[in-house]
Design a protein around this nucleic acid. Structure first.
Length: 807
DNA sequence: CTAGGGTTAG
């Protein structure tokens, strides 16, 4: 304890008080003049006053003054050292802080705690924990401050195991009675995924303060138990700013944005608290989600009238709110007003996003190009922006640029790119993205894995979809289950899909409306009418999900495919919303199968009423007539279509077999015995053209492939391959050619082929089958070259692996 | 002289 100079007790105390007052109003000038008076009156020998002065300088950010005061002190106490230490750790200068710490003769618990806090503030939580363990090793008794700090480190990195150890020290040093420590324990268990322990501790607490309840509120919010959080909140008799903010943030995160705004209003009305930046950020985010421009403007007015600093996060939230709720021009004005140098990437990304939402790609791209330090988010926003506006090629181009020059893609980027692969049904592209996910360490991300399941299923590799799903068994969310159910349903494993759905229910996962799309389509594929009805009712009554058009269409499909065509039609008539093309199309195709001309005609008429140029409806109807032997009606329908100006006939090949007309859609070609179908098709190829129809794309593809394969076998495959590579061949074609080269056992051409490609393709993965022969000496050299250029190889036969040149 | 609970953009 520092006792002031006994000769001048009053003067010392009064000076210290003056310093404290100066500190309160951050008056550096006043502090400096007091400093001068201290020196003049010879008070600078008082360690007490000097420590106070150091504290003043440190808190006002004048670190160099603090340091010089320290240097001039003839006698230094542990307080002096700790104040200096705190000055450095506040600046984030941890290296210097450590140096000072090592020079302290007898560091006490405050010194150690200061170091831990310093690391925490720098986000270096592991180092903070390390400091704590060294402190214990040195047999220094921790204080309640030490515990709260180190528990915060554990909470931040969700280190449950370490947190438990720290808990044991809390007990050992008898610190359990501090509410602050117990609150920190609560928070640690809540954040590290041990809700049970959190509840146990909370129940056992003899005294709970507002903070304790705050932790519980945010625990409930974390687990999506919004109603429980609301209950706790309403029962609290004292609410501080954190309480209100937790509720507003929690509501906002779970889509209860109206509640978030209502809570914000209640806070302004019922509490004497002033909103802080978190309040504003979350309230603005709620406005943005609801696209409530007017409310957003009111909050903006509130911010302005409070003279609140709109630099940093609040300004970003404002810009984002305007950009999202149709006020891009206001957002633009704020951005212009603030000036380039005062804004960060976040502000510009929000603005960019606003333009994308309007479909204005050009200004968005201009913002993107003008950004100097673009981060992953900016890149992703631009890429997703292209995707949302249907500009897949631009998205792909930008993604390639990103992989080459930009920051590492994150799970958002990869999930988006995987959905492109799914919509392109390009397995090769999808596998490249998978390879990048592995290489950038994102392969464990739930959203990436969910997108992978869909991608593999859509590109036909149900095997890999299964593999991915089984690998994430510990981290499955609703989307994972849904994706897998959809995947199985698409591949005709209806029973398995339903089994999986039952597992989902047993696991206590909540299905959403898309899950039910998967479930109902599984029933459709297997023809389980009664099961389908049951699940449909379960959706409505148990899970309280209002059916959407997809669900209605699936029910129509389910009934129709089972031959209950009339019932399907009755179902449509009872629908509370307008049926769409898919609904009628589904009924129409059922009518085709069950040869119900009357209903089929109705369905086709209604369908064409919605979409008069729907060639599919015409050909389905024509086919229905043909199947029923009504050749004249079939021909009439064709004529009707041509008269209606419908020219597109892609996806349909008319094949004459045994004087009967069959329609081969792309699906049939893919699923039936390929060779058989292709043989038939090629025989009547010319006939189709003569009849004036456009041949099916899949058939064309196959033809091309066959031709290439034959020529490769017959001629010099290498030359041909390279010629293809130099042409602007679409990538899935090039990979097909690769496959053919493999069939010809021509690995050297394959390697050369790839080497020509790699100039164009940033990432190329060669997959499927056994590629061991690429691993001879030539192949290895080749692989090393590619690895250096960022080319990744995946070899699914050995699990998913990545070749990056290091191994 | 040191703590702890609420954190924005995709």
């Amino acid at each position: 304890m520092n006792v002031p100079n006994p000769d001048m007790p009053t003067l010392s105390y009064h000076t210290a008080c003056l310093l404290q007052e100066s500190l309160k109003c951050k008056d550096l000038f006043a502090g400096k003049s007091i400093h001068g008076r201290i020196v003049k009156s010879g008070l600078h020998f008082s360690v007490f006053l000097m420590n106070n002065l150091m504290n003043f300088y440190s808190k006002t950010g004048s670190f160099s003054y603090a340091h010089s005061v320290f240097d001039e002190m003839p006698v230094k106490t542990i307080h002096s050292w700790n104040t200096l230490l705190s000055a450095y750790s506040k600046q984030g200068k941890m290296a210097e802080a450590n140096e000072i710490f090592n020079r302290i003769p007898n560091p006490d618990s405050v010194s150690w705690s200061t170091l831990i806090v310093g690391y925490n503030q720098m986000g270096r939580f592991k180092s903070a924990i390390k400091v704590f363990s060294e402190m214990i090793k040195e047999r220094v008794t921790p204080s309640e401050y030490t515990m709260t700090s180190v528990l915060a480190s554990c909470a931040a990195i969700e280190a449950l195991y370490i947190g438990r150890k720290v808990h044991s020290f809390v007990v050992k040093f008898g610190l359990s009675n501090f509410v602050s420590v117990t609150n920190s324990l609560l928070n640690m268990y809540a954040k590290s995924g041990d809700p049970m322990m959190t509840m146990v501790i909370f129940d056992r607490m003899g005294y709970r303060d507002t903070s304790s309840l705050n932790v519980m509120v945010s625990l409930h919010m974390q687990y999506g138990q919004v109603d429980l959080a609301r209950e706790k909140f309403e029962r609290m008799n004292e609410r501080d700013i954190v309480t209100w903010n937790s509720m507003i943030a929690g509501y906002n995160q779970h889509g209860y944005d109206l509640d978030a705004l209502a809570t914000f209003g209640n806070m302004l009305r019922d509490s004497l608290l002033f909103p802080d930046k978190f309040t504003f950020i979350n309230a603005l985010s709620a406005c943005a989600n609801l696209e409530m421009l007017k409310v957003g403007k009111q909050i903006h007015a509130c911010i302005v009238s409070m003279q609140f600093d709109i630099n940093g996060p609040v300004g970003n939230a404002l810009i984002s709110m305007y950009a999202k709720s149709g006020g891009v021009h206001i957002a633009q004005k704020i951005v212009e007003h603030a000036g380039m140098s005062n804004l960060d990437v976040i502000a510009f990304t929000s603005l960019l996003d606003g333009y994308i939402k309007l479909g204005d790609i050009e200004p968005a791209r201009q913002i993107f190009d003008s950004l100097r330090d673009r981060d992953v988010v900016a890149w992703t926003a631009m890429i997703v922006g292209y995707l949302q506006n249907g500009l897949n090629t631009d998205a792909l181009k930008l993604f390639r640029l990103m992989v080459r020059d930009g920051p590492k893609p994150n799970s958002f980027t990869l999930a988006a790119m995987l959905s492109v692969s799914s919509s392109f049904t390009s397995l090769s592209h999808g596998k490249q993205i998978h390879a990048i996910a592995i290489r950038t360490g994102q392969a464990s991300s739930v959203s990436v894995n969910n997108a992978l399941i869909t991608m593999y299923a859509r590109t036909g590799s149900i095997k890999y979809a299964r593999l991915v799903f089984s690998r994430i068994h510990r981290f499955r969310d609703t989307v994972s289950w849904t994706s897998m159910i959809m995947a199985l349903a698409q591949h005709g494993f209806g029973e398995e899909a339903l089994e999986l759905f039952e597992n989902l229910l047993a696991a206590g996962v909540k299905p959403d409306h898309i899950t039910y799309v998967g479930v109902l389509s599984a029933c459709t594929h297997v023809g389980l009418v009664e099961q389908g009805r049951r699940y449909y009712n379960m959706m409505k009554n148990v899970h309280k999900i209002e059916p959407t058009l997809s669900h209605y269409s699936l029910m129509v499909d389910l009934l129709g495919r089972a031959g209950l065509v009339q019932e399907a039609y009755d179902f449509i008539k009872k629908m509370p919303i307008e049926p769409d093309v898919i609904t009628w199309g589904s009924l129409l195709s059922s009518c085709k199968v069950y040869k119900n001309v009357e209903l089929g005609r109705v369905a086709a008429e209604r369908l064409l009423h919605i979409d008069p140029e729907n060639s599919g409806a015409y050909s389905a109807l024509a086919n229905l007539y043909a199947v029923c032997g009504k050749w004249e009606d079939a021909a009439k329908t064709r004529k009707l279509m041509k008269d209606g100006g419908v020219k597109k006939e892609q996806g349909i090949s008319w094949v004459q077999i045994k004087n009967k007309v069959h329609v081969f859609g792309a699906d049939d070609v893919l699923h039936e015995q390929k060779d058989e179908v292709y043989k038939k098709i090629s025989k009547i190829w010319e006939d189709i053209k003569k009849m004036g129809f456009v041949p099916d794309t899949a058939a064309v593809m196959h033809d091309l492939e066959e031709e290439v394969k034959e020529q490769m076998l017959r001629h010099h495959s290498e030359k041909l391959a390279i010629a293809f590579a130099l042409m602007n061949t679409p990538q899935n074609t090039t990979l097909r050619i690769m496959k053919n080269l493999r069939v010809c056992n021509d690995c050297h051409s394959a390697i050369k082929f790839i080497s020509k490609l790699s100039g164009r393709e940033i990432i190329l993965s060669i997959v499927e089958g056994k590629m061991q022969y690429l691993f001879d000496e030539n192949g290895k050299r080749c692989l090393d070259d590619f690895a250096r250029n960022g080319v990744v190889w995946t070899l699914p036969s050995r699990g998913f692996e990545c070749y990056n040149g290091t191994k």
